[in-house]
């Protein structure tokens, strides 16, 4: 059981790390603000997986579940606020190109 858990943990961590890389790739190379938000969401997915694995391997699934539920609530609020900011930016510029967001420099 313990060995099995260990492999399961290693494999999950590898996939979570790959997912984080994918998300970072999305955040760093995208020009569209909405796409950057999608990248952030993907990163949160990887983190959710890590939390679940942490609870599963240590046998504290109930604790991990309550963490995940809290995390999801927070995630929704952040995405709603972020969507508000994106729409606000769009109202000003009629564009969502991240590279045009360069009036702040230094």
């Amino acid at each position: 059981m313990s060995g099995d858990m260990s492999t399961f943990f290693s494999i999950s961590v590898i996939f979570a790390v790959l997912m984080v890389f994918t998300a970072l790739y999305c955040i760093l190379t995208s020009r569209n603000l909405i796409r950057i938000l999608i990248g952030l969401e993907l990163m949160t997915k990887a983190v959710t997986l890590l939390l679940a694995v942490g609870g599963y391997v240590s046998g504290r699934m109930a604790l991990a579940q309550s963490f995940i539920i809290t995390l999801i609530v927070i995630e929704v609020v952040i995405i709603a606020v972020a969507a508000g900011i994106v729409i606000g930016t769009y109202r000003h510029t009629n564009d969502l190109d991240a590279r045009k967001l360069n009036s702040l420099k230094g």
Partner: peptide
């Protein structure tokens, strides 16, 4: 991983609500 409640939350909120938020944001912008 025997986390059904978290799964239900993930399904309804992340796959449901957040997708709706994203799609409405996309449709509100050009």
């Amino acid at each position: 991983m025997k986390a059904p409640l978290a799964g239900v939350f993930e399904l309804s909120v992340c796959a449901g609500l957040i997708t709706v938020v994203f799609i409405s944001t996309i449709s509100l912008t050009k």
